[in-house]
Design a protein around this nucleic acid. Structure first.
Lengths: 204, 204
DNA sequence: ATTTTGATTGTTGTTACAATAATCAAATGG
DNA sequence: CCATTTGATTATTGTAACAACAATCAAAAT
């Protein structure tokens, strides 16, 4: 392998006095250091850090979280294309329009039991719920194991997947390995506020 | 220093089969791991961790003692949560809901230029677009670098993020490391059919 | 029966390291 | 001569490793 002396590689390169990555060009624009955190809080800390990064980028403050009631007025049904192929699908000329779709109808079953909540944090990332997405919460649905729910634990609201322990106690799972499951212990206030039946977002 | 053979130390000790510190006897009662944080936020994270520790302690006394009911009110302030960003957000009492949101208004700008497409495949997974999601495609928007677009390459349709090469040729990026970028070569038919301005889905 | 002591094993803050990323300028190619 | 390629250089970043510390055990000593 060695060919130090007989190398005939190209003669590019050589000393670069001022080369190299510049300082503070990392994610945070400042030096970092490591810190030890309990396994179960890893996700929380990471969430905080990514929010901190965003805050640095755009001077915006953290999005204020609030529950918003659903308004289903207006009646627009727009074309929906079919696509069954993974990489591509045939030209959506007008004859490929399968049907028309009204997002309001698609998303909302019981208008007066439906609310929207803005997602914050990455704890449901792998379920496709990203920060700033709107989650559709239906209070009239009966929660089942496996559902994504809006739960209240000691008056803290959180969106998690509903599961149960072997002792049939509620257990809330994140969709992100950085976040530990939450077990509801005796004496804790716990309520399932509603079932997350859908979500929507804007990209642009 | 060595005195292996001539040692006349006391004869205490010897094998201790079950000796040693017990697991999870540390500060947090659970395993820990290290994480890298920006220097300036080290204190914030440490504050959070010590508050978390207190909270754990308190929780414990709740479960085992019955005389602590008095200080239930004094909830520990978790610095990380003050910005409502990470794990929970404040209780939205039902009568505090003033705003209403109409998904159609939120998602659709130009009614007659908007179409829906059903996502298939995982190539845009990390952008939060999962199979069966509905993408909102607006044909009236002008595509910009960084936008998610519905593109047509040799009459195959695909949803990707728009980028460009150094030669200013279009380049389509997936939001999933398993998928390679697509470069548009000379002679290929290429068109940006519309800009993906949003998406929505149902969970249940 | 209590205390001392060495062995044992987990925690914890820090350092080290390898993989990646960013940047520079010489060499190359048109 | 100018844009691109290439290797060198330097910083970031997640993780592994380490050493000092802490907790626990039981044999030996008191």
């Amino acid at each position: 392998m060695e060919q130090k002396s007989t190398q005939n590689k190209s003669k590019r390169g050589g000393l670069r006095v001022n080369a190299g990555r510049k300082v503070d060009t990392g994610l945070f624009g400042e030096p970092t250091s490591v810190i030890r955190v309990p396994e179960s809080q890893k996700g929380v800390v990471k969430d905080f850090l990514s929010a901190y990064r965003n805050k640095q980028l755009k001077q915006e403050s953290y999005n204020h979280l609030e529950i918003v009631a659903a308004d289903k007025s207006g009646d627009i049904a727009l074309p929906l294309f079919t696509s069954k192929v993974a990489a591509g699908f045939p030209s959506p000329a007008d004859d490929h329009i399968e049907k028309r779709l009204n997002p309001n109808d698609f998303l909302i079953d019981q208008q007066d039991a439906t609310f929207f909540v803005t997602i914050s944090g990455l704890s449901m990332r792998d379920a496709g719920l990203l920060p700033n997405d709107k989650a559709v919460v239906d209070r009239s649905k009966i929660p089942a194991i496996g559902d994504i729910v809006l739960a209240v634990i000691d008056s803290e609201y959180t969106i998690k997947m509903l599961a149960k322990t072997k002792q049939n106690q509620p257990r809330l799972l994140s969709a992100n390995p950085d976040f530990a499951p939450i077990e509801i212990k005796e004496g804790q206030q716990f309520e399932i506020w509603g079932v997350v039946t859908g979500s929507f977002r804007r990209f642009k």
